[in-house]
Design a protein around this nucleic acid. Structure first.
Lengths: 226, 226
DNA sequence: GTCTTCGATCAGTAAAACTTTCATGATTTG
DNA sequence: CAAATCATGAAAGTTTTACTGATCGAAGAC
């Protein structure tokens, strides 16, 4: 399970990290709000542990941004020394999925994390299907693609191609793979449709934006990396 | 929101019930575990508030039965005076979605309930027999459709088609999906009924009105978006 | 019982949108 | 630098969709 841990106190952060890694989870640490927010919106985590009192941007703001502006619906467990009812209510109202006050027992943190991800696992059965890379967001339900909050219109084939590349993020896919999975043909290499479509796709999702998304690996295929 | 409250202490139960009803929720009370379990498995609630220490069958057992045997995945908020870490861990491990210890502030209970149901509440429609999009209202009980307060008469097939589209609001549905769910055929007979019916539907619900409702997504299907 | 009406479906057409091919130029690799 | 590989523009080919008119059958009217 991929966990994003946004917590500035070194001792607490490494205590949690160590504990979670012992359970076989993958922990990414962020020590301030701004970086945490950036990471959370770029990478797909299974759950986010978010301290309220952190430098840069406080936890409430980070949570609000993620849940209410960026449309990220990774479950968030808020963590803090502020234990008053009002603090808890604010946190939960703004979109946090659970709230735990310090000091806490690691056991309880772990149990709450599991309850959280169990809940979302169920939800994902018919929930939103979203793929991301950098600032590009692909919604498999509405078939919409956005980059930097601008809408990008793709044709059915372009969409399928991008979807395939994203589902294989961080892996080089060969032309044969693409032909089989996007065009659904098992032979015929006497064509350059793929090249042409890569060109179409790049024009739409890269031209006018700061960074490249699709990388060519000469002699091997194409890849999309975070 | 429909809430099932399993709690034997009269005072606590009515305190919670009253508070929730003030918020416009519908509360069903159960005063022991056996009845609670029965109710939970028969009716569809949005959330269950479950005290651990109750007569008949304790809360842990009820939760275990529901989540692990009966396949009910209504979110459960556990409630109890037992506040040790181990109790909390047990509760969460067995399938509870949140855990609150007595005494608690009603505000916090409410916030936790909302956090818990935020997602499932959206997807369920809650037995509501009314579907809406923009100024169009579809009543599944009376089978009436109104737009801008004007009645629109749909035939059975048109109604079913619109109903399916609305139930999948904000998702692109393919012709295959439509054929399976509205016409109930699993194979693709080379027909254009769907196109024809879309045309009928659009004539009735869009002609003479200001905005379009049904959007075509070429090569993929149709979608209705808010 | 026959007629009428209405809904469901099919078939056909034109226009628009999309896909593929082909030809050519650019880039990378050994 | 030559061969292989990739990028790109434009034209040709194909599919998809919106819409119309015709047919068929069932339910109710007379």
């Amino acid at each position: 399970m991929k966990v994003l841990l946004i917590e500035d106190e070194q001792s607490v952060s490494s205590f949690i990290k160590k504990g979670l890694e012992e359970q076989g989870h993958l922990v990414t640490q962020a020590f301030d709000g701004t970086i945490g927010l950036k990471l959370a919106s770029q990478e797909d985590f299974d759950v986010i542990i978010l301290d309220v009192v952190i430098p840069g941007m406080n936890g409430i703001e980070v949570c609000d941004q993620l849940k209410n502006n960026l449309g990220v619906n990774t479950p968030i467990l808020m963590l803090t020394a502020l234990g008053t009812t009002d603090d808890i209510v604010t946190g939960l109202e703004i979109g946090a999925d659970d709230y735990l006050t310090k000091p806490f027992k690691f056991k309880e943190l772990l149990a709450r994390l599991n309850a959280l991800t169990r809940r979302t696992a169920i939800r994902n059965g018919d929930g939103k299907q979203i793929l991301r890379v950098k600032d590009l967001v692909m919604n498999l339900d509405t078939k919409e693609v956005h980059r930097d909050n601008k809408e990008i219109r793709l044709t059915a084939r372009e969409f399928k191609l991008l979807e395939y590349l994203l589902k294989n993020k961080n892996r080089v896919v060969s032309r044969t793979d693409i032909l089989e999975n996007v065009w659904e043909v098992d032979f015929d290499l006497g064509t350059n449709v793929i090249d042409v479509y890569m060109n179409y796709l790049r024009k739409k999702i890269e031209h006018g934006f700061s960074s490249k998304i699709i990388k060519t690996v000469i002699g091997m295929g194409y890849i999309i990396k975070d």
